[in-house]
Every structure is written in C-alpha cells, then in structure tokens.
Nucleic acid binder design. Structure first.
Lengths: 343, 343
DNA sequence: CTTGTCTTGTCAATCGTTTGACTGTATTTT
DNA sequence: AAAATACAGTCAAACGATTGACAAGACAAG
C-alpha cells in the first residue's frame, strides 16, 4: 500500500557504513568522526529517514513517552488549571524529547487498571496524575512499586506516593494573616472539601485564625460544593450570611467561588470592601478584571507542571527515587480587601 | 533495578504452551480452544503480565496511537471547543484500544517537522490537526502523501487535505435566514477572518443576505479580532454602530463576540431584542445563562471529535482513503432575537 | 622494533512480540 | 477404507533498532 519504509539498513548500505555506525550517528555518539557523521546525515536527510520508534523502544527499553492522566469531569478542559499544568509538563517533556500520552480517568480506565497496563507494558516511562479528589483510592496501588509515578497538584495523606503540589497550607496561612492583619475577627470561609488540598486549606485557615497572637478570630465555614464554581460560591454566601450576619470578610478557597460571593454581595447591596472584604485563591485572569479587583493567593499552575516534569525527568535519570514538593504561593493584594469596619 | 520484566516467554514456559499459543491467546485468536485460553490467562493474570508494547508495535507494524495536535495559543485549553473535540476523539479512540498522543503546534514543533517525524517513525498511526488559522501552510506538505491525516474543524481551500468540520457555510445561511425572516434589513456582522471557516461564514452570510428572495438586506461587517473574544466583540460593536447606526440586528461569528456586543448594547442602553437583535454561533454554556438568553447556531464540537475519529478508524482499516465531511449545525432560537423594529 | 594508547568503526547478540506456513490428530465424507 | 476437512497448536522467520565487546590502523613512547 505505502512506499516501503526506509530502514537503518538502507541508510547503511547507501552511505557505505555499517549498521552500527549509522545508529551511533543518529544518537550523537561521540565515537563517530565529523566526516562520517556528515556523510551519513546527508543520506538520512535525502531519504527523509526517521528511525522506527517501536524498534528503538524495544532495543533501548524506553518509550520516551510520559502519560498524563486527567480527571473525568465534564468541563475538565475549561478548568483553569488543567491547561496550565499540561502546558508546563509538555514544555519540559518536549525539550527532552519526550512525548505526552493523554488519558482520561474514566471508570473504564480505572476498572481495567489501564494505568498499570501502560506502565507495565512500557508504553509509557512515567505517569502524572492530575488533581483527583478524595475518592481516588486506586492510586494507592502504586505505593511501594518501582513505577515512575507523580501526583500533580494533589496529595494523599498517610501514603508514600510522590507528589508535586502547590502549598495549600501555606496559602491558607498567607490569606488568614492578611485578613487578620486588617483587623477582621468575624470571617466566613467558603471551603472545598472534596479534595485533600481543599481540606488542608480549610484546616490551616481555621488553625491560623484560632491561634492568631493579636487575638483569635471567629470563623464560620460552609462547603462551596463539589465543583468549586461561581454558582456554588453564590449559594454558600447565602448560607454564610444567615449563619454569621456580622462577618466582615469572606475567604473563598478559589477565585471562582469568590466571584460568586462578590456577585451575592453586589446583588444584596453590600459594599466591597467597605462592608465586606472578599478574598479568593488561584489568581485566575478574571480576578484582576473584576470591579473591585479580587485580592487572592497566587497559585502558579504552570510552574507546578514544570516542576512535576522536572522531578519525573530526575527519576528517569535515576537521580532521585521519590519526591514530595510543596511549591510556594504568594499573596496578591488588590481592591477587594480592606481594614475591617468598626461596628 | 526493577524486578525483571516477565515476558511472553515466561508465560509460555510456566503454562506449558508455546510462545505462539500465548500470543494467539492474548490476541483473542479463534484458533485457540477455550481450555487452553483459560489456562494461559490464569498464568497471565497471576503474573500481572502485559505484553511489551514496543515489541508488539515492532512486530505488528502498528503503534495503536493517534496524535492530536492543538494550536499554540496561550489560553488554548480554555477555548470552548478544544476540550469538546478532544473528548470526542478520546472516547472513540479509547473504545478501539487506541491511545492519544498530545502535541502542541509550537514553532519548534513545526520548524523541526516533528509532525512528519511522528508519522514516518510510526510512533503514531494517524494524526489530527485541530483548528489552526490561515497561516498553517506547512500542512500542505501532507497533500498526496499516504499518511493518515485529518484536519479537525478546519479546512483549507484548493487542497485535497482530509477534513471533518462543522458546516460553517450552513450555519451562516441558517443565521441569515433567521434574521431575514424576522424582517431585519439592516444588519451588522462581526466576523472572524483569520480562519478559512470564519471567511466561509462571512461570505455565505453576505451572499444569503444579498440574494434573499423577499428583498435583500444591507449588511455592514467588521472584523472582531484574532481572538474571537468578548473584548473583540465589544470593540467591533462600537465600530459597527458608528458605521451603521440604523442597524436592527447584530450577527457575531461566535458567542463570545456576541456577548461582547450584548455588553456594549447594555452599556449604551439599547434594548435587546426590542431595539437590536443579537445572534451568536457555537452555543456555549453561557449563551443560555445570559439575560436575555442568546439566540445562536449550535456547533456540536464533541460530535466533530467523534466523527473525526470515526473517519480515522475507517482509514486505518482501509475502508476509505480520504474524507471531507461537513457536519450539520442547527438554529437555536432564544430571547435575543425578535422581529425588526419599525423605524 | 616492540609495545601501548587513541581513534574510529564494525560484529553480532539482543530486545519481546506477531504471524504465515506447517504438523499431527480427530472427525467427517465419499 | 481411503481421502478430505477441521481443529489446535508449534516453528521459526521476521520486525528495526541499540550497544558492549572487539578490531584495525595511526601514532607515540620506550
């Protein structure tokens, strides 16, 4: 059907060198002289030859492929951080000649243990699992195996699973310190509780507020819903204002929920930040476009992607065997937070 | 370092059958009896054995991998339709045992002709190129080659390149007919001109309006910008209202630009649809949440993904050698369009 | 002149499957 | 009873690279 593929043998014959020599040239092995290299490459280029990757993979025991598994959410691609993380991983991987295999953690994918199959069959050299929720128990299967495996922007308590994750605990402390420093002592927290990072954020926030040296704050928290959405933030704010009408600040575990809170406050004619300060987390694009612009904690997901891949590459080179990185976050003060009002 | 991989040889030895038998079992070949199959599979499962994919690929001359190349835009992942298309492709591919290799059309990717390399090296059995703009000339390189290659939701004039694409021409006719049928005779068009599908939409829209049996309409068009964004739509509307203050309807080539137009009209106190009707295209989620809700043309990108992959699979099976599909679109009438006002 | 060292290239084993051709029985047909 | 057909499994030749061990020649040192 198709033109018969040219192989390394053809290149060898036509250039007059041995099979091995051609192979060494293609792999930039220093044992080969420049003259030879040039002659061989000329033939290679003339034939538009690229070595068969299956054969190469078989002989070299490496697929030069990394798997990225993303959660099976309907709108997963439009979620802020997925794209950023993937871009980061892709950039590093591509720069080292690795390709990215994309998978979605569907029920089938999990039930058939496709993730194991990928690694055992050596179709992939390593695997990234991006931000799943607290129910992803099957991941524990990787504990104690020799497979290259990294949880990205997530984390499981009581396991030795590798991870690279934004430091949500630190974010919570930064955010709490900011609000407490502004004098807020009645704070509403809209939390996300279906991820371990979300739980960590909530717990650290509550702890920081309770132990604040200048005097503890009273915090009321509600769940913002599974989707961490604007809609969920709106609904959560309704609850919050019933439970704690006197609050002077609202902290949302992500910016989308914070936008929902702002919307509620606008709809109910509460001035931001004069009456109520609002703070988010992530620092999505929209945060700076709002009016007032949203104070938040910056989570650099692109960097999370970059670092995850760096770790993976180190593992593949045998430089490390495990990793557990918490990446720094930073406070971004904009217009939605101000000193607490005096009642 | 790691436990030595179990191979088909180990399974053969331990189950007492030959290499070939094991292989045939694994490939569900009918030549093998149920008893044998069961015995072999028992050993396979006990060892957690999965065949080496490189070896399999080498022997079978198929990588069981499909490439998806996406445009190199900063926010590409958050773009409405990328996720939908990829989900569609993924679903079909996964159901047939194919994996998805993700690539981004960076300058490097193009300059080094990585796309060719992937196909020639047989690292991938086929390639999808999702929605690039009019500058993607390098794609013409695939004309007349035997490579499995499909343009997804895009299309190049004057080439024989395979494509599967929403029928933007039909969309334009549907939209025009809707507005013309409502009596609009002064229409503003916000077009996207950096893709061939965008140009097609514009031309068909103008043509339909010019040739309308019940009397042609006067259409003024402006470019909504490279990004097809809300912001671009807003700016375009400003221009439009200067050029044609008497217009009674605005047609935007996508919903995001339509939202920009609606925003401008709200800011300038024009009632929608009483004074000006607004119409979009794509039918993004937000379209139905707006107030008034946005009339639009539905483009089913998930289906575009599904169909692209169907075509690819047919090509791989040798059932077809080329494809050029325009997928149907449909009119969605909501609250933003109404009969033209009488001046 | 012998020995040792460097350079540069080649040999040949190996990676782990798939698959067309073949073999040896058992069963059916003539 | 002989011949034809099915059935179930095995043989062995690919598939197209990589790579450690080896070799041949040039040159320098002793």
């Amino acid at each position: 059907m198709s033109a018969k593929c040219t192989t390394i043998k053809d290149i060898a014959r036509e250039s007059g060198f041995s099979l091995s020599t051609v192979s060494l040239v293609l792999n930039n092995h220093p044992r080969i002289s420049k003259t030879t290299r040039d002659k061989v490459m000329e033939v290679v280029r003339r034939h538009n030859y690229y070595p068969n990757s299956a054969a190469r993979g078989l002989a070299s025991k490496s697929s030069y492929t990394l798997s990225v598994v993303i959660p099976n959410l309907t709108r997963v691609f439009s979620d802020i951080y997925l794209g950023e993380i993937i871009s980061g991983i892709y950039e590093r991987a591509a720069s080292q000649g690795y390709k990215i295999l994309l998978d979605i953690a569907t029920d089938d994918f999990i039930r058939s243990r496709e993730y194991l199959k990928l690694l055992v069959s050596r179709r992939t050299d390593g695997m990234f699992f991006i931000g799943a929720d607290t129910h992803a128990d099957f991941l524990r299967e990787f504990e104690g195996t020799f497979h290259r495996f990294i949880l990205v922007n997530q984390w499981f308590p009581d396991t030795k699973l590798n991870f690279v994750c934004a430091d949500y605990g630190a974010s919570a402390r930064l955010a709490a310190a900011h609000l407490l420093g502004l004098g807020h002592r009645h704070i509403g927290l809209i939390a996300g509780t279906n991820t371990y990072t979300g739980l960590k954020f909530r717990d650290e926030f509550l702890k920081t507020c309770a132990e604040w040296p200048a005097g503890p704050a009273q915090v009321v928290w509600v769940d913002g819903g599974e989707e961490w959405s604007q809609r969920g933030g709106y609904a959560a704010t309704t609850q919050l204002m019933q439970k704690a009408p006197a609050l002077t600040a609202i902290m949302a575990a992500n910016d989308r929920m914070a936008l929902g809170a702002m919307r509620w406050l606008a709809d109910n004619h509460r001035e931001i930040p004069e009456e109520v300060s609002v703070m988010g987390a992530d620092d999505i694009d929209l945060a700076s476009y709002m009016n007032p612009s949203l104070s938040t904690i910056r989570h650099d997901f692109y960097q999370v992607g970059i670092e995850s891949c760096n770790r993976m590459l180190q593992m593949l080179r045998g430089e490390i065997t495990e990793c557990s990185d918490l990446l720094p976050t930073s406070l971004v003060v904009r217009g939605s937070t101000a000193r607490a009002r005096k009642d």
